[in-house]
């Protein structure tokens, strides 16, 4: 099980009954993601993969020695397969979104901080509605630069959905308050997610043995918070396609009210954030 998941039972009462009308049906009932632009900041997207479908725009960060990295348009391809896997999940959840890609990772699912910063700045400037980042850096020297970019996105109505690290170590930017941070649960339902009352992770979505697009056109099962984040990115895109006026702050609140462990039905005017222990699948 990747790290940063929620405790099996927390028990903080939350007054949710004031918002009884806000739930999955209100949030995304009948929505398909149309009109929402989602960017996958990753290893690229393979547009030929049947589970991914059309990729509207694709860029890559080009780094040359001694020069600042530049962002250039490129063909939608993905040698590592990680970005394609994430994109396939978003497409599964929100079939009609517009998907774009900024490639910041190399073929080995790793990359430089300079490329990440340049790619993220570009995606924010492009005005995407949702940006999925299933990656992080553990280097504190990039913390403040990343935090600035995440704040910029937050105020520009661009929702950053970021996967928590798979290990109990600190890294960025998923641990920032300006982003939506996602860890894994082990259930097979792509639409089921939980609110996590113990920070820094805010939501847990499907992330264990997820069937994902694999290089070459098929599917394979993979595990990691990397695959939990795109579920929430897809759901956020669904919500935005129905309620385009939501700011990241409001959208995060809507996600909270739609979480499987948050319900207005309670005898205390609040709810208990509890989960039954997971069966090991």
């Amino acid at each position: 099980m990747p790290a940063w998941g929620m405790a099996v039972d927390g028990s903080e009462p939350m007054p949710a009954d004031l918002f009884a009308g806000i739930g999955p049906t209100w949030a995304w009932g009948g929505a398909d993601g149309s009109g929402v632009r989602v960017c996958v900041l990753d290893s690229g997207i393979d547009a030929d993969h049947p589970l991914v479908g059309p990729v509207d725009q694709a860029w890559q960060v080009v780094s040359e020695d001694g020069r600042p990295p530049r962002v250039r348009e490129c063909a939608p391809s993905d040698a590592a397969g990680h970005g394609t896997a994430c994109a396939g999940i978003i497409r599964e959840v929100a079939p009609k979104v517009s998907l774009s890609s900024v490639r910041v990772l190399g073929d080995g699912k790793s990359g430089t901080a300079a490329a990440l910063l340049a790619g993220l700045a570009h995606a924010v400037d492009e005005g995407f509605d949702v940006i999925n980042m299933s990656l992080s850096t553990a280097r504190p020297e990039f913390r403040s630069r990343l935090a600035e970019l995440c704040d910029r996105a937050y105020f520009r109505r661009c929702l950053l959905v970021v996967a928590a690290h798979n290990l109990p170590i600190e890294s960025f930017p998923w641990s920032f308050a300006s982003v939506v941070s996602v860890a894994s649960h082990a259930e097979p339902d792509p639409m089921r997610f939980y609110y996590n009352a113990t920070p820094p992770v805010e939501f847990c979505a499907r992330g264990v043995r997820v069937p994902v697009a694999s290089p070459g056109g098929g599917t394979m099962r993979n595990t990691g918070n990397s695959f939990a984040a795109p579920h929430i990115a897809g759901i956020a895109a669904l919500v935005l396609s129905k309620h385009p006026w939501l700011t990241p702050f409001q959208l995060k609140s809507v996600l909270y009210h739609c979480a499987a462990n948050v319900s207005p039905q309670s005898d205390q005017g609040g709810i208990l954030v509890t989960r039954t222990p997971e069966r090991d699948h």
């Binding site: 990747p2 790290a3 990753d42 290893s43 590592a80 990680h82 896997a85 910041v104 990772l105 699912k109 790793s110 990359g111 430089t112 901080a113 300079a114 490329a115 990440l116 299933s134 990656l135 992080s136 850096t137 553990a138 280097r139 990039f142 996967a163 928590a164 690290h165 798979n166 290990l167 109990p168 170590i169 993979n222 595990t223 990691g224 918070n225 990397s226 695959f227 984040a229």
Partner: peptide, 24 residues
């Protein structure tokens, strides 16, 4: 296992700045 995973990740991250969050 948790410590093993941490060590594995720390070693494999090595000199890398940014890493994808797939368990692989």
């Amino acid at each position: 296992p948790a410590d093993s995973a941490t060590l594995t990740a720390l070693l494999s991250a090595g000199s890398v700045d940014v890493l994808a969050h797939a368990v692989g």
